[in-house]
Amino acid sequence: MSGAALTLTLATPARVWFDAVEIVSLRAQDESGSFGIRAGHADFVTLLMPSVVRWTEADGATRYCAVDGGVLMVARGAQVSIACREAIAGAALDSLEVAVRDYHAAEEDAARRARVDQLRLHARAVRQMLRYLHPGPDAAALGATPQ
């Protein structure tokens, strides 16, 4: 089976990044370290570490994808499947590094904005409860007295 090619499928819950792309070899990393896959590899399942997966396509081009952990499975010595929560693909390591940094910065910014919105909502709710529990002189003007 050494002349057979591998195919790679890589998916996240939101997107299929690569679907049955023909590859020659793949390198990934699990808890035991870095490992390689070539055509004819034994069936295999492992948990990936957050890392960069790289592979060589049939045309000789090397591609990269940063993954946030995940599961890698080899089936029938010819199909490599990766399922992960998040992935960022790149044609070169330097551009991938920039893309990962930008992604994480955007994620941190979104989390920071969500925390600020949550604090504002909480403060508004506390003010509303205080107004209800301790009505001031404005209560009479708002119709709190009988007519």
Rank of each mutant, 00 (worst) to 15 (best):
G40V: 02
P13F: 09
C84I: 10
A99I: 13
P13W: 06
T46C: 12
I23R: 04
V45D: 08
T145C: 01
A28W: 07
V126A: 03
L48H: 02
L10Y: 04
A139I: 03
R63P: 00
Q29K: 15
S32M: 08
L142N: 12
A87S: 05
R85W: 03
G3Q: 03
I23E: 07
L48Q: 00
A39R: 03
A91R: 05
T145R: 12
E108Q: 10
S81M: 08
R115H: 12
S25W: 04
S34F: 10
S95W: 09
G40P: 01
A141P: 00
M129R: 15
Y64N: 05
Q79K: 10
L142C: 02
S51M: 05
T62N: 07
L48N: 02
M1S: 15
V80M: 02
V53A: 06
S51T: 15
A39V: 01
V116F: 07
S95M: 12
A125Y: 10
Q147M: 00
G90E: 09
T46L: 01
Q128P: 00
V52K: 09
T56K: 14
R113A: 15
S51Y: 01
L133G: 07
T9M: 10
A89Q: 10
D102S: 15
L8I: 01
A139V: 01
H41Q: 06
P137M: 11
Y132R: 14
A28I: 09
L48K: 02
I37M: 03
A11P: 05
R113W: 09
D59K: 03
A20M: 10
H122F: 10
S51K: 01
V116E: 15
A75E: 15
S81V: 05
Q147S: 02
G40I: 04
